[in-house]
Amino acid sequence: MRTGVLILPERRWAESAESWRTFDELGYDSLWTYDHLSWRSLSEGPWFSTFPVLAAAATVTRRATLGTLVTSPNFRHPVGAAKDAVALDDISGGRFVLGIGTGSVGAGDSDVLSQDTYTRRERTERFEEFVQLTDQLLREPVTTFTGRHFSAYEARMIPGCVQRPRLPLAVAATGPRGLALAARYGQAWVTTGPTDWSRGFTPQECLEAVAAQVRALRTACELQGRDADSVDRIFVVTDPAGDFLSSPDAFLKMAERYARAGITHLVLHAPRPNGIYAADPEALHRISADALPEVRDM
């Protein structure tokens, strides 16, 4: 099992650079950030553009994979997203993963380009087309595509990805249509656990929800004629998973449970001083020293 860290793009780079460098040096396998224009309870505070932040992160890190969790059709077009992704793959020396999802209506930027709120069906259709076109753009030097929601006319992606045949896609999904996309196009699949956090979930209920999603992904892969074990299965760990940052032992016990459920990659939010994801700033240092080697053997 691999372990990553998600760093919110909320601090000026002069402050944030040290976090990216430190987590890379501590041995975390992947480093991520959200791709939003603003976000939920932090919408009135600082929030920087994702792709430039990751480009800067690529220059201060050496080994960890870098990625978005996740880019969505809410305010991005596949041509622009793919062009930025190709550049990031190059700047990072082939360490970039493009996470893609439908995006959340409540995240704060789903209606920033239009006051119309897409229905669930419309969001799913846009997501399907976004993934299809992005896959084609990242594979081909020149792409022409006409869809219902997105089109491209002789869109050039030269010189293309460092990683071949293209850089990896991490597809976030829980429903049948989204899981089918992950099975067909994804080198990784992403879940945040239960789909309705507002209900409140116990750690056991969160674990059971993720295990059920993994089983559904396996079924989707079988329908595509694909080995599900070829797909990296990422769980972005949230509060319903329990008090996993309290000690390296607590983290190890949580990791063991999710490894048995079929997860291959855990992503932890970098501790913030207050508010959402507030935690001891030294927690991830202790986990690095006392838990990461054992987690890698799971």
Rank of each mutant, 00 (worst) to 15 (best):
P176S: 15
P176D: 15
R177P: 11
R177W: 11
G178K: 14
G178I: 10
L179R: 04
L181I: 10
A182H: 09
A182N: 14
A182M: 07
A183D: 14
R184A: 11
Y185V: 10
Y185A: 07
Y185W: 15
G186E: 06
A188H: 10
A188C: 10
A188L: 10
V190I: 15
T191F: 04
G193D: 08
G193C: 05
G193P: 09
G193A: 09
D196P: 00
D196R: 11
D196W: 09
D196V: 09
W197V: 14
W197E: 10
W197T: 04
S198N: 12
S198Q: 15
S198P: 06
R199W: 02
G200I: 01
G200P: 05
F201M: 01
F201A: 01
T202M: 03
T202S: 15
T202E: 05
Q204L: 13
C206G: 05
C206S: 11
L207F: 03
L207H: 04
L207K: 00
E208S: 04
E208D: 07
E208Q: 10
A209G: 09
A209Q: 08
V210G: 00
V210R: 00
A211I: 01
Q213T: 15
Q213S: 12
Q213V: 05
V214G: 01
V214A: 03
V214M: 12
R215C: 00
A216P: 06
L217C: 03
R218V: 14
C221M: 06
C221D: 10
E222F: 05
E222I: 06
L223E: 14
L223R: 13
L223V: 15
G225H: 03
G225W: 04
D227T: 14
D227K: 13
A228I: 05
A228N: 09
A228S: 13
A228C: 09
A228W: 13
A228Q: 08
S230V: 13
V231C: 07
V231M: 11
D232G: 12
D232C: 05
R233D: 13
I234R: 04
